[in-house]
């Protein structure tokens, strides 16, 4: 099966700055991928290259098997791009706005009206059909822009910071829409700074820093890999200093230290190793009261993968 997106070693330089440096990864149909990285890491440039708005200096991108370099127009008909800042026409209603873009995509007659109806249903915009765009809230404008990107039935959706500036309810609703899109077989590349939300909606993440791809993989696998160096906090009933000595002698334990009454250490072993450690402590009479490994989240993955490099 053809990948919905395949990036092959793209590089883009603006003056002396390499905005994107030999980035390669792919997305399968139905895959929702979070694209994360610090500000200026090259996320937006990569997304603009995929969307044919920029041309890579080297390398190529294939959207549903079609090259952005050789067939930009074909690519545009297969993708939907929602930029971080997009415009809306004044003196236009929601329906007129969508109708215009449907016409621009070459939809005619009944096909156009059916497509408009489907997309408005999907994004719950029907109640606002006759409303002027200027009067919409930020969340509703985001929905409208998402509806616009769906008009050509794209195989790939590129959403650049879609949740920026939305209130919690609108964010939850947007998350649900994105999940539903993944269920319909569309691949989604989604950038956001709200990593907790990405973890909930994404199947995979790609981490980029200083223009280079640092990691790409399934969210659960990357979390497991990060958890291999989990931070564990242990409080003991007996003397903490004795407990610290006992823990420091154990295998897979790194940098054990006292933090108030608690013993904090990094643990590089598996879940089974951690269970063995706990059993050994009990056997030695250390008497643990609390023993907790901090739950790894996407932020840990992000922090462990990136180095905070600025460019």
């Amino acid at each position: 099966m053809t990948s919905a997106l395949e990036i092959r070693g793209i590089t883009k330089q603006f003056g002396p700055t390499k905005a994107v440096d030999s980035v390669s990864f792919s997305l399968e149909p139905g895959e929702i991928c979070g694209f994360i990285g610090p500000n200026g890491a090259g996320k937006t440039t990569t997304m603009r290259i995929i969307s044919t708005l920029e041309l890579p200096d080297s390398g190529d991108v294939f959207v549903d098997g079609v090259s952005v370099l050789a067939a930009a127009r074909e690519v545009r008909s297969r993708l939907g791009f929602m930029p971080d800042s997009y415009g809306a026409y004044g003196a236009t209603t929601v329906t007129e706005y969508l109708d215009f873009f449907a016409r621009a995509h070459g939809l005619r007659g009944r096909v156009r009206s059916q497509t408009l109806a489907s997309v408005m249903d999907f994004t719950s915009l029907h109640p606002l059909a006759g409303k002027h765009i200027d009067a919409l809230s930020k969340g509703m404008k985001q929905r409208l822009c998402l509806a616009k990107t769906l008009l050509n039935d794209p195989k790939l959706l590129i959403l650049d910071e879609p949740a920026a500036g939305l209130d919690p309810r609108a964010r939850v609703e947007l998350r649900e829409l994105v999940s539903a899109l993944g269920d319909t077989g569309k691949a989604v590349l989604l950038s956001s700074h709200i990593l907790t939300e990405l973890a909930e909606v994404c199947d995979s993440v790609a981490v980029i820093e200083a223009g280079r791809l640092q990691a790409k993989g399934r969210v659960d696998e990357m979390m497991r890999a990060t958890r291999a160096q989990a931070e564990v906090t242990c409080r003991v009933l007996s003397d903490p200093a004795a407990g610290l000595r006992a823990i420091a002698e154990m295998p897979h334990v790194l940098g054990a230290r006292l933090q108030g009454e608690a013993i904090v250490f990094a643990f590089a072993g598996s879940d089974a190793d951690r269970a063995s450690l706990l059993a050994e402590l009990v056997r030695r009479g250390v008497q643990p009261v609390d023993f907790a490994a901090r739950v790894t989240n996407l932020e840990d993955v992000f922090l462990s993968v990136t180095k905070g490099t600025l460019q």
């Binding site: 008909s77 995509h105 939809l107 009944r110 059916q114 050509n152 039935d153």
Partner: peptide, 17 residues
Amino acid sequence: MTNSASIESLPGSDAHG
């Protein structure tokens, strides 16, 4: 371009329009 078939597969799609 006829995209109606796939668009109709979107959740919430019905025969409006």
